[in-house]
């Protein structure tokens, strides 16, 4: 189970980033010349990705971040469990459905965390990606080895997307475990009034996880670009978190209706459409197209910036 992976890793020393970074250099040095055949090139790229992932997962604060992400659904489940049953309001919400079915803990937690916690996690990861390495000087070392900057950037982006997926999956799995333990897992009532068997509902939950991951992948592209602009990882992190939060605020102002379709966050709560029967795709389709547009624009911008960035260190 990927969710448990970071916890299962041996505790690394405080100097873990540098060690892992030198590991990355080793992987890069092992990469063959561009003239080599495709197979070793792919293998070399996978090595690069693997060391990038190891670097990401071995950081203490990332492990702590995953813990925080997993804590939210657990706290929510416990809060609902100990709340006065007579105080349960009958809103049109996932939270109100938790009492009857632990499955909804996962959904409610995702909806809650999509606004701040998950974007914050992406802001942290993307701050580290380029600006962080530039600050501690390992980026310079990476760049002297014969790995094209474009490939390095692509690897870092893929690592961010995998990290996003892991984060969302941790929330969903923690929600299922906490909800299942406290309320039990039962067939799921959709918004349309039909009932889904548990395996079908879990499949829908996976689709929700992928939909949220697509949003975070778009935010990661934006974060990667911001990360190439500075050598202060904290500055990049704060900037990405601010941009994300600002978009959520702008999206809540009805007077700015003309702006909403252009905001990355506008279609994200449409994940509730996954719980209709049959699934209602149009809004989510627009959401995915918006994600795609942000990915293309900001990856190209990151590439344009990173390619001629002066790396000191």
């Amino acid at each position: 189970m990927p969710a448990a992976e970071p916890v299962g890793l041996p505790a690394t020393a405080i100097s873990a980033p540098d060690e892992a970074a030198s590991d990355l250099q080793g992987a890069a040095l092992a990469a063959p010349a561009p003239a080599a055949v495709a197979q070793p090139a792919v293998a070399a790229w996978l090595r690069l990705l693997r060391s990038e992932m190891r670097l990401m997962l071995s950081r203490r604060r990332n492990q702590a971040g995953l813990g925080v992400l997993a804590a939210i659904p657990i706290v929510m489940a416990i809060a609902v469990k100990i709340a006065d049953p007579s105080n349960q309001h009958q809103g049109e919400s996932f939270l109100a459905s938790i009492v009857g079915n632990g499955f909804f803990v996962a959904l409610a937690a995702l909806v809650v965390e999509i606004g701040l916690f998950l974007p914050l996690a992406i802001a942290m990861l993307s701050g580290d990606a380029v600006a962080g390495e530039a600050q501690i000087g390992t980026l310079r070392g990476l760049l002297v080895v014969p790995v094209p900057r474009t490939r390095l950037l692509a690897t870092k982006y893929v690592a961010l997307v995998l990290g996003s997926f892991l984060g969302v999956l941790v929330v969903a799995v923690a929600g299922l475990v906490a909800g299942g333990a406290l309320f039990g897992l039962h067939p799921v009532a959709t918004l349309s009034g039909t009932t889904l068997a548990l395996p079908v509902a879990l499949w829908r939950l996976l689709l929700v996880v992928l939909y949220v991951t697509a949003f975070l992948a778009a935010l990661s592209a934006l974060g990667l670009f911001v990360s190439t602009l500075t050598e202060q990882p904290l500055g990049a992190t704060v900037a990405v978190a601010l941009i994300s939060t600002t978009m959520w605020i702008l999206d809540s102002i009805p007077q700015l209706g003309w702006l909403h379709p252009w905001l990355l966050v506008d279609k994200q709560v449409a994940l509730a459409d996954m719980l209709r029967d049959p699934i209602y795709w149009p809004t989510m389709r627009l959401g995915l197209l918006t994600d795609l547009a942000y990915v293309v624009v900001f990856l190209l911008a990151a590439w344009a910036r990173f390619a001629d960035k002066d790396v000191s260190g």
Binding site: G115, W248, S252, H260, V265
Partner: peptide
């Protein structure tokens, strides 16, 4: 209203 965070998604 449309989703807003923290208000909206919440």
């Amino acid at each position: 209203g449309t989703g807003v965070v923290p208000g909206g998604a919440a």
